[in-house]
Design a binder for these strands. Structure first.
Length: 429
RNA sequence: GCCGCGGUAGUCUAGCCCGGUUCUAGGAUGGGGGCCUGUCGAGCCCUUGACCCGGGUUCAAAUCCCGGCCGCGGCGCCA
């Protein structure tokens, strides 16, 4: 047994009791006749006192920052100590010594720039700020799952090695698969739709890959996608579901992630339901009024989204009813106006964080849409076949976890947020 | 991919524009040693260590010019 208690679990009621802590040496202070070790574990920081007359004094001379140690000692309630308690060491065991000097400061005294941080990433992730990010992300995923379970959804897993592109547009990473060419999946889209035709309501949290030449603070080549698909539903239904999910995520983080938000010195935006719905046609009118020469069918890029953010005075809103031509083949066109589709993006400031739609659920419509986009239906037979055997109307969306975390932490770069980012410039660590 | 900006001790930086003189480069933090028995990013003393790579201009290059490599931001592509 390496530890009897986590640091945060030891309160003044433990006064006089023997406990064992284990963790990392966060800071050392040597006052000659007395040393103070600030020890860090996953629950936070605690102070260890090593008296000159203690049997642990000798070994305490060898400690370096970030060394992993185990401390057995007696708890003292003392109002001079952080949190009113400290551990007086009787025995210290050095479990793993850290080399000095550290390549990056973990204590927070000296900042490091992002290149250094990503190079020395495991040390960087031990900083309090990054620990807070990791914990907030876990809370977000917990709330996401809990909300969906409550709504009757089932968590699934779909293939990540695929035979061809699913949507067109995005570039793929090829892999060699038993002598054949295959690709890393850019999305779970087609398989989650099929699974909605099996168990109706499904979600998946898994990586996806895009070989785009994007080089921005908000793009990754490998990203975690939070996907939802729902049978017997249309895009209005899944937008409402999304509102509920986001509301619960923010609520959970504000309630259970107080300490972490405090460390980040950030407050996530409130999710006001209903979230504003701006039609694509309304959006381009606003942009035209600001001098943008944008025509029906054009994408709304980052510069334009920045303008909309200013004009709308809204940080979180939907853009709905996108041109059909701008959306993938599986997106359903509106019956009353086939040039528009039952689709939406959720925008946070200038970032698209969610994309969703009502899907086509009839084979002949899918085939027509594929041909219209210059794609061969034969290439999608693995998908189309199942629409011969009863496929319900369905709708869904995909949300990028890292971009959601931009909203939840206030950190303005996904490469900082993701523990080991893979982008245009990075393949290690 | 295009454009712009940047690269100085382990880490973060001052100096660069107006080449030296004040630079055989200053500070902070860290590393090593010492003092300090209540510190709280401890304090004090001693010590330690650097101009990304190549070429050019010049009496002289951290500083100016060219190329390379790496990083950041904007755009394109795009979730």
């Amino acid at each position: 047994m390496y530890r009897s208690h986590f640091i945060a679990d030891v309160t003044p009621e433990y006064d006089g009791k023997e406990v064992i802590w284990a963790g990392w040496v966060h800071l050392l202070r040597d006052l000659g006749g007395k040393k103070f070790i600030i020890l860090r574990d996953k629950t936070g920081l605690g102070q260890v006192v090593v008296d000159k007359n203690s049997s642990a004094f000798g070994i305490s001379q060898e400690l370096t920052q970030e060394s992993v140690i185990q401390v057995r000692g007696i708890v003292k309630a003392d109002k001079r100590a952080p949190r009113g308690i400290e551990l007086h060491a009787e025995e210290i065991t050095l479990l793993s010594k850290a080399k000095a000097p550290l390549p990056l400061d973990v204590s927070g005294k000296v900042k490091a720039d992002i290149d250094t941080r990503l190079r020395e990433r495991v040390l960087d992730l031990r900083r309090q700020e990054m620990q807070a990010v990791i914990k907030i992300q876990s809370l977000a995923l917990k709330a996401f799952r809990e909300t969906l379970y409550k709504e009757g959804f089932i968590e699934i897993f779909t293939p990540k090695i695929i035979a061809s592109a699913t949507e067109g547009g995005a570039q793929l990473f090829p892999v060699i698969y038993f002598g054949k060419e295959a690709f890393l999946a850019q999305s779970p889209q087609l398989y989650k739709e099929l699974m909605a035709g099996v168990v109706e309501r499904v979600f998946e949290v898994a990586p996806a890959w895009r070989a785009e030449e994007s080089d921005t603070p908000f793009h990754l080549a490998e990203f975690i996608s939070m996907d939802v698909e729902m049978a017997f539903a249309d895009y209005n239904d899944v937008m409402q579901l999304l509102e509920k999910i986001l509301h619960n995520i923010v609520k959970t983080i504000k309630e259970e992630g107080k300490e972490e938000l405090k460390i980040l010195n950030y407050e996530p935006p409130e999710v006001k339901i209903p979230i504003k719905r701006l039609k694509y046609t309304e959006a381009i009118e606003i942009l035209r009024s600001k001098g943008y020469n944008i025509k029906f069918g054009d994408d709304i890029g980052t510069p334009e989204l920045r303008i909309l953010n200013e004009e709308l005075k809204e940080d979180l809103y939907f853009i709905v009813d996108w041109p059909s031509d701008a959306r993938p083949f599986y997106t359903k066109s509106k019956s009353e106006n086939p040039e528009l589709s039952e689709s939406f993006d959720l925008i946070y400031k200038f970032l698209e964080i969610v994309s969703g739609s009502t899907r086509n659920h009839k084979r002949e419509v899918l085939e027509e849409a594929l041909k219209k986009k210059g794609l061969k239906p034969e290439s999608f037979e693995f998908f189309l076949k199942w629409f011969d055997y009863g496929m319900p109307p369905h709708a869904g969306f995909g949300m990028g976890l890292a971009r959601l975390m931009v909203m939840l932490t206030g950190i303005q770069s996904v490469k900082e947020i993701v523990p080991f980012p893979r982008d245009k410039k990075r393949l290690t660590p």
